[in-house]
């Protein structure tokens, strides 16, 4: 297969949701949740659910880009923390400083990503170990920037985040916006290179794709989405906390896998990860509304996610067989 044909084939993959399995899981999750929670489609429940989704959706898109390039970023959660505490220190409760704070967060995220990219692509350290190490640098910096929880986000921001426009939750619009951003990036050369490098780095190199630069870009884009996640976290919490994002890291990897993106790189897209992130959050809700005793909740939560991860892997197995 020649390269242009292959690229054309991949062009739609991201928006089109990488697997029927992911869509099916979301449908099942929504159906089960609706059955267990009578007011699932009520105004408050919808708004609050989408508000819960946004941070995870954003970080999952970032992780997708990194994974597609053949890497993995275990520092994304720490980047969310660092970007959020920097932003909250800058904004300091004043609405007029909001653009500056958002810019600062994005700058921090991309700088963190650039550092990861340099360490992984130039120094050629293993991504898992290298980003695990940088995660401590970032969370350490977050503690320096904001030693104790505090700082406040303008109330207009937290209110708007929970509002609806013509009946559509703002948080849902934010998710649509994130998907569009991915869609735009997807059409850009950098993302095509990311797919090529993640799929087969040597072949990409032979085709004059700048492999090292592309890898760095993947981490920078990961950091960009981590910063967007940080802004969502701030809008959601209304205040800064130097430990806020750390648990998002593994959830982002789980969302990517649920979305059908191959951890080996090169195959998949953020569309699936967005749905995967929603499935993850809904599972937590389902376990709660199913009245699972508190002591068993974490266990059941983990078991359901393992089941979902296994289901997400089935289409990949079928693809691996010779063409049927």
């Amino acid at each position: 297969m020649n390269v242009p044909a292959r690229l054309r084939d991949l062009r739609w993959a991201g928006v089109q949701l990488s697997g029927v399995a992911t869509v099916a899981m979301l449908v099942v999750a929504v159906a089960v949740n609706t059955a267990l929670q009578p007011n699932f489609w009520g105004g408050y429940a919808l708004t609050s659910n989408f508000a819960t989704f946004v941070p995870l959706v954003a970080i999952a898109i970032g992780q997708t880009v990194v994974v597609l390039s053949g890497g993995l970023d275990l520092s994304l959660g720490a980047q969310v923390t660092l970007a959020s505490v920097v932003a909250v220190q800058v904004v300091d409760g004043r609405l007029d400083r909001l653009p500056l704070a958002a810019a600062a967060a994005l700058g921090v995220g991309m700088a963190c990503g650039a550092l990861n990219g340099l360490v992984v692509a130039l120094l050629r350290l293993q991504p898992i170990v290298a980003t695990f190490a940088t995660s401590f640098v970032f969370s350490g910096l977050a503690l320096v920037v904001l030693p104790t929880p505090g700082g406040s986000v303008p109330i207009e921001v937290t209110t708007a985040y929970r509002d609806s426009v013509l009946g559509v939750p703002v948080a849902l619009l934010a998710i649509v916006g994130l998907a569009l951003l991915w869609r735009v990036l997807r059409g850009h050369r950098v993302l095509r290179h990311v797919y090529a490098v993640g799929g087969d780095a040597e072949a990409a190199y032979a085709s004059l794709v700048p492999v090292t630069r592309t890898r760095v870009w993947a981490y920078v884009l990961g950091g960009l989405f981590a910063a967007l996640s940080a802004l969502a976290v701030l809008a959601n919490t209304g205040s800064g906390d130097p430990f806020v994002g750390n648990e998002l890291t593994l959830a982002s990897v789980a969302a990517v896998v649920l979305g059908g993106t191959a951890l080996a790189g090169g195959r998949g897209g953020a569309g699936g990860s967005i749905l995967g992130a929603m499935v993850l959050a809904l599972v937590t809700n389902i376990v709660f509304f199913a009245d699972v005793p508190t002591t068993y909740r974490q266990l059941v939560n983990g078991a359901v996610i393992i089941l979902a991860l296994a289901l997400a892997g089935i289409p990949a197995l079928q693809k691996r067989r010779p063409a049927a």
Binding site: Q37, V244, N285, T294
Partner: peptide, 17 residues
């Protein structure tokens, strides 16, 4: 459950719901 601030926000939203 052992959770972070995001998780506790979700806990409280579930209670509201």
């Amino acid at each position: 459950a052992d959770t972070d601030v995001n998780g506790q926000i979700q806990q409280i939203r579930n209670l509201i719901n």
